[in-house]
Design a binder for these strands. Structure first.
Lengths: 159, 159
DNA sequence: ATAACTGCAAAACATTTGCATACAG
DNA sequence: CTGTATGCAAATGTTTTGCAGTTAT
């Protein structure tokens, strides 16, 4: 699922303006990374992104991918998620609903959900603890019920 | 904050029984790790735990610490938290309220909170997505208002 | 021109693994 | 006794860093 061209244009403009304001260069590599992560609404890790770019005939180094992701996070065009102990996943964040995640512990399938109560909880917690809360991360872990999920119906032996 | 002796006794018993049921050995090292993580209600990382044990005159290897933490998680005596991309934090989990976390992005101070609505959300999500949800992790990130917090009152320059 | 950026490879870091030795059952 | 567990050190996998060469401004 890709972003409409006009919105993509806006995203590019936002990134360009951000770089300029910061006195950083608008290099082609940075925009290529931006394009690639906005090409889908998947949750990708840095290396996947690197491979996709490489396969797409672009010549960017892993270091540049990481560097650019950092910049994209700084201007809120990308969010990073840390699911479990594995490598971080990145996701485009412009004009997309704020959502939380549900992860199947067996097949690692990822689902997104949204519940307005989380916002209320966040506000309440901010108030009680006198915090300026910038963001939250809510992940639920369990077992899905899909046919092809590997560990489906396998009884857990442990505790 | 340490656990009362009688409860500590129960925890040891649970771990022993668990190992037995699994056909795993009840080695002194494993119980030493258990003692150490139950000695406080801090959130410690594996290396801290290793250092504490070493400083306490015990001779356990890092590998054993990791191995034991895994076992302790399997029998629900310990929970692992992944805050950001840093190393995992472990926390004792017996007879302690289920809680979520609030983290200051400036001083890394950790606060715990609990809101019953999270439970309802979890149940609702489980129902909608036909998931058997085992656990969740909710972290809120922001800036605290404490006097000695390093970045206090520093205006963020970025976007 | 020149300071910032890039690619590469090496470093860093947390965690896991392999193997010879030790020891619980 | 025997199969696990241990300690150590080396391996792993992800992310960061240093540096010489490149390039946007």
């Amino acid at each position: 699922m890709s972003v409409p061209p006009q919105q993509m244009e806006e995203v590019r403009r936002i990134f360009g303006a951000f770089l300029q304001k910061r006195g950083r260069r608008q290099t082609p590599e940075r925009f290529i990374v931006l394009e690639e992560i906005y090409a889908t609404n998947d949750h990708v890790d840095a290396d996947e992104l690197y491979i996709r770019l490489k396969d797409g005939g672009h010549r960017v180094s892993r270091a540049t991918v990481y560097n650019t992701l950092e910049l994209l996070m700084d201007c809120n065009l990308v969010v990073r998620h840390q699911f479990g102990r594995n490598q971080a996943k990145y996701e485009r964040a412009f004009s997309y609903w704020q959502h939380d995640h549900l992860i199947c512990m067996d097949c690692n399938e990822l689902f997104e959900f949204c519940d307005p109560r989380i916002q209320s909880i966040q506000e309440m917690v901010a108030d009680i603890y006198q915090f300026d809360i910038k963001h939250h991360s809510l992940n639920m872990y369990g077992r899905c019920a899909r046919e092809h999920c590997p560990n489906r119906a396998v009884v857990t032996q442990e505790a």
